[in-house]
Nucleic acid binder design. Structure first.
Lengths: 229, 229
DNA sequence: AAATTGAAGATTGTCAACAATCATGGCTGT
DNA sequence: ACAGCCATGATTGTTGACAATCTTCAATTT
């Protein structure tokens, strides 16, 4: 049982999961202040576990905190978008290099299953689920590469991507992933040419970067004006 | 002032820095149990800040914790060594791709300065300093690549590398980095061929992996016998 | 003698109160 | 009218005590 680090569900982990969800669904929008005392009261917990949960989300890059001053949901920055997509392009190519020779029928089947889940979410017009499904789809290569460090790194990037995309969808309504947007990706991922797949990843990321970035650039203009509270 | 997140020195951060140092210097060896109450008493702090510091080190991969059971200094695993070196090979090549066209005299000067610091530490037979110096040397490309996500990822890997190498040095005495081990690395890093530098990184990492791994493989045999406390 | 059960100790999880620090707004002096 | 200062409120940092959970070991039963 060494390989099964069963996570005992403690108060902190439950709070962290709940908070993460509220941030990613937009109930707590980017830039919103998160106050320990108020949140503890609302969730019926004490500040101890709450602080631990918040620390977790800080490390995931979803919250930023300044000592003695306050904690906020991280703001969207063009710099971070660029950085994340650049690193992601690099790592996803690496993930496919690592997984390439150990792909099998199970890999292909799971890939198609996750794409079906994505399309179902799109058809159901469920933004949040569609975003999660797309990230799950891309995550398969990282999971099956057999490299724990790589998977941890991907998980770290994934949270912020989900935050950015969720904000994007809330602002634009349903301009999210198209139904056929991953057809090439999947076809090449189960194909015979690693080079072609690497090229597809670079192309896929370039498109995603432009879409996400153009949104953020116009968004920052509107968020600069202080709210008339 | 957006880009200067000035860190207010709080109790937690001081404890985290101190604990990190004790782990990396081997005062707290891999596998050692870390008890909150005892440590809090020793450091003259309360369990609150201590828990926060430990959470930080857990996220850095230096500690592992099981709820209601205990916390220990992470144990050395061959799997992790392999994974880290693979990801590092990928990311360090990417870092040099990103930094390549913006290298300048300052970059070359800093590279040589850090190599001088490394050689000074080696000449002084200072293990801990030599390890830090080598990691600082490799870190330059990550720092100057202008990608915050990349730098964060590197920092995460760096801690574990330092832990493994420190354990290596303690076991073997002074069999650490050789004085001239980075001559090729630096020569190519300031040279004209990115491809040559990429090849050097792959070769450098292969050698480092073999050295570190061979140590860990023999080490695990000796650490399996419980201490007759 | 071996397996099971239960109690005791150890360790982390949780809580509520208190202290330190920071941001805001009004007041005073010029 | 304007600049600087001080008090006030808000927020996080810190503390010590208490509760929940796990591990260990010895007593008991088969």
């Amino acid at each position: 049982m060494i390989t099964s680090p069963l996570k005992r569900e403690t108060m902190s982990t439950k709070i962290a999961a709940l908070l993460r969800r509220e941030i990613l669904t937009g109930e707590l929008p980017p830039g919103a202040q998160v106050v320990e005392t108020g949140l503890a009261l609302r969730l019926g917990a004490s500040r101890g576990p709450l602080r631990e949960a918040m620390r977790q989300l800080i490390d995931e890059g979803l919250l930023v905190s300044v000592a003695y001053t306050g904690t906020r949901v991280v703001d969207i920055s063009v710099q971070d978008i660029n950085d994340i997509y650049a690193v992601r392009t690099c790592l996803e190519q690496f993930a496919f290099e690592q997984v390439w020779d150990r792909r099998g029928d199970a890999f292909a089947a799971e890939l198609h299953a996750r794409n079906d889940a994505l399309q179902a979410a799109i058809d159901a017009a469920d933004d949040v689920r569609a975003i999660e499904a797309e990230l799950d789809l891309h995550g398969l290569a990282y999971e099956r590469a057999g490299n724990r460090i790589l998977l941890t790194t991907w998980t770290g990037l994934r949270g912020r991507l989900q935050l950015y995309w969720a904000a994007h969808h809330r602002a634009h309504g349903l301009s999210g992933p198209l139904r056929e947007s991953h057809d090439d990706y999947i076809r090449l991922a189960v194909g015979d040419s690693l080079d072609a797949m690497r090229a597809e990843i670079r192309s896929h990321m370039r498109r995603g970067l432009e879409t996400t970035k153009s949104f953020v650039e116009q968004k920052t203009l509107t968020t600069l004006q202080p709210e008339p509270d």
